[in-house]
Design a protein around this nucleic acid. Structure first.
Lengths: 165, 165
DNA sequence: GCCATATACATCCATCTGGATCAATCTTTT
DNA sequence: AAAAGATTGATCCAGATGGATGTATATGGC
C-alpha cells in the first residue's frame, strides 16, 4: 500500500476532519517556521507578536494572547526579544503600572512589512488549489469554526484530570 | 478596541486565510496537547505515530513521516517511547536490514481505541458550529489544499537562503 | 569484489516550549 | 488605610523540538 493510499485511508477515517486540518497545518508550519527562523533568527511567535503590535499600536501582552492563542510566557519572551532588537518599544500604562503598552519602531514596521509580503505569497501558494469562490467559502466556514466557544475550552478534553483518576 | 474587534480586524486583513487556519489550530493544539500529555504522559506525536501503526500494521518510520509531516527524529523518538511502554513492537525487514516494520501490541491497540474515542468527541465539538453539509464542504476544500504540491515545498519561503543574501 | 554514494533510523546538542512560580501593582473588603 | 485577593507580566525549570551528525545497511559503478 503506497503512501498516497495510506493518506487516502486516513482521510476516509472517522477522524478525517481533524486529520486533514492537522495535516495542512503541520506541513505549512514546517515551511513557515523554518523560513522565519533562518531568515530572521527568531521564533515564529515573535513575528506573530510583531504583527499584532504593528496592527494595533498600544496593544498589551494579555490581548496578544487572545489573538494568537499561546501561553502567556511565550508572548512575554517574544516581546523581550523584539525589544532587544529595537523592533518594538513599550511604555507603561499611565493608569495601570502593570500594563505595558507596546508600539513598533520604524525598524519593526519595516521588518513586518517584509515578512507580510512573503506571507502573502505563501498564502497564495497554499490556497492555490482553490478557486477564488472556494477560498471565500473555506474562509467563511473556518471563521465559523474559529468562533465556536469550544475551540479553546473543551468539554471532551478537560484539562483537569477527572475524579476517578 | 476590544479583543473581539481586534480579532475581526485580523480576519479582515490581507492574511486572513492564513490567520484563521492558524488560529483554529493553535487553539485546538493547546487543548489537545495538554490533554494527551497529562492523561498519557506522552507528546502528541507519539499518539499520531501509534495511530499510524495501528491503522497500517507493518508500516515503516519513513512512511509515517509522510502521513504526519514531522522531522524524522520526531518519529524515531516517538517509536522508541512507544516501544519502551510495550505499545508497539518492531521487526526488522527481511529484505532490508535498515527498515523496521512496526506493529501495535494489544495494549497499544486498546490505548489507541481509547484516545480515538475522545478525539472523535473533540472533533464533534470543534466542528459543532457547522452543519453536516458545511462540514463536508469544508472537508472537501481542505483536502484540495492538502493535495497542493506547494504545501510541503514552498517557492515563496525557500529553505535555502538566496544567492544575494 | 571493492569503493563511493545513498538510504533508514538513532542520537547529539542548542534552542524552544509551557506549566508553575514570582514580583509588582491594582482592587476590594472591612 | 491595612489585609486579602486578583491581575499583569517576568522568570525558572523540566522536558520537547528539529537540524546536524552518526551508525548500519544497501546499491551502483568499475
Amino acid at each position: 500500500m503506497s503512501i498516497k493510499n495510506k493518506l487516502d485511508a486516513i482521510f476516509a477515517s472517522d477522524l478525517r476532519h481533524l486529520m486533514v486540518v492537522s495535516y495542512i497545518v503541520l506541513g505549512n508550519n514546517a515551511v513557515t517556521n523554518r523560513y522565519i527562523e533562518r531568515r530572521y533568527q527568531m521564533p515564529v511567535h515573535a513575528w506573530s507578536t510583531l504583527f499584532a503590535i504593528v496592527m494595533f499600536p498600544g496593544i498589551r501582552a494579555k490581548e496578544i494572547k487572545h489573538l494568537f492563542p499561546r501561553p502567556q510566557n511565550t508572548i512575554s519572551r517574544a516581546v523581550s526579544l523584539l525589544e532587544s532588537r529595537d523592533l518594538v518599544k513599550h511604555q507603561t500604562s499611565p493608569t495601570d503600572g502593570r500594563e505595558k503598552r507596546l508600539f513598533a519602531t520604524k525598524a519593526g514596521e519595516d521588518m513586518l512589512a517584509e515578512i507580510r509580503a512573503v506571507s502573502g505569497l505563501r498564502q497564495e501558494e497554499l490556497f492555490s488549489p482553490l478557486t477564488d469562490a472556494e477560498r471565500e467559502t473555506f474562509f467563511a466556514l473556518a471563521r465559523k469554526i474559529a468562533s465556536g466557544p469550544k475551540l479553546l475550552d473543551s468539554g471532551a478534553m478537560r484539562a483537569e484530570p477527572t475524579e476517578k483518576d
